[in-house]
Design a protein around this nucleic acid. Structure first.
Lengths: 201, 201
DNA sequence: TCTTTACCTTACCATGTGGTAAGGTGACTG
DNA sequence: CAGTCACCTTACCACATGGTAAGGTAAAGA
């Protein structure tokens, strides 16, 4: 498959799946967006599930890459951790889109089996646990404690990332803008304060 | 409509919508689960959207009630806040189900308009802001700061609540069980520590 | 030059979708 | 008793769904 077409196909699929979910998007809709027929799409990916899987796989690959990059960004474990989470919280369209998609995946995981997503999350979470443990004073945390802590931060970030449409609907665009400006600082503060709490125990 | 049938219908609809999302559930599937024909369902609610709206409305009403109850539970604002969040984090099937549904709503809000959910969240969030502000030492927070803080906790709770299927798939049932046992304490710790951080500024 | 291969087309299909139409039954009411 | 109403049925409809079948075109390789 031509890499250009492949990229474009995965991009549009990712965008549509993120926006409306697996069941909310038809392969015909994706094909139309691509400018060719439904069967052209089925030539590239024989089923809708396979296409969806490819989208997840690419996200998974990119994520690993990003995480490895982040691990080399700084020598201070705490700094590294913060940088990493700030990266996750970046409200760029692509990042928001992927967060939405992965959140849907988390919700749908009950029903549709999806190994790709699980693999992605497994490596991802395992590496985060290590990152948390590497911070000075947190070496003594159990796996579960480190995971819960990391997961709480993750939840804080991801939940906020998918909320702007609703939040702006409720409080208006201006308030949302102010929230965005304040979020990063408060995220760092959140990380700092919960680390301090762990250390003082 | 007979209240018993109505309750049963809303219950099964809520369960199915929470599990598979709006597009993932057909009214025929709901009717089958109820044991009568699709048109019997359409007699009660003329469209799928109306049914879905009624499900959301009921959740909204219940939520308000719960929140008002929580506000009378204790006289200490901090205690009240913790109790409230612990209530939100309760991993009971009904609570998890509703969290899943509302999370989907947050994701779909981009596309399908939904005033019921927005109203629900508006009152809900506004009241939380007040609860945060009522805590000693946090009276000086701006609306946005209080909202971000409350939202971070909300994200930590809700994200964890929808994760068990995935987490148990990755780390196994035993680890998940341990996480559940540790979560409440760490949630309280999270709240405490971020409040302390706000106060010391 | 012949064949294969990647990429695309139109035609088609069984199934499922949300929703309408029309009618039936039994209880409650004037 | 006649009429209304809540609640349910089967039949039906237009349309969208994921996927198959069969074929066409152009480029690349033998």
């Amino acid at each position: 498959m031509q890499t250009d077409t492949k990229h474009r196909l995965l991009n549009t699929s990712e965008a549509l799946f993120a926006e409306r979910g697996f069941y909310g998007v038809s392969i015909a809709a994706i094909a139309k967006e691509m400018g060719f027929s439904k069967q052209a799409l089925l030539h590239h990916y024989p089923t809708k599930e396979k296409l969806y899987g490819a989208v997840l796989q690419r996200i998974s690959d990119d994520f690993l890459e990003q995480q490895l990059e982040a691990e080399q960004a700084s020598h201070d474990p705490l700094e590294r951790l913060k940088t990493f989470y700030l990266g996750l919280a970046k409200p760029s369209p692509e990042n928001v889109q992927r967060t939405r998609l992965l959140m849907r995946e988390l919700l749908d995981n009950n029903g549709r089996a999806n190994s790709a997503e699980n693999w992605y999350l497994k490596g991802f979470l395992t590496r985060i646990i290590q990152m948390v443990r590497a911070v000075e004073g947190l070496g003594g945390l159990s796996d579960e404690q480190a995971l819960i802590t990391a997961y709480q931060w993750l939840g804080a970030v991801n939940y906020f990332l998918i909320s702007p449409p609703t939040l702006s609907g409720i409080f208006g665009e201006a308030t949302l803008e102010r929230m965005h400006r304040g979020f990063n600082d408060q995220l760092v503060a959140l990380i700092d304060s919960s680390i301090k709490a762990h250390c003082s125990v």
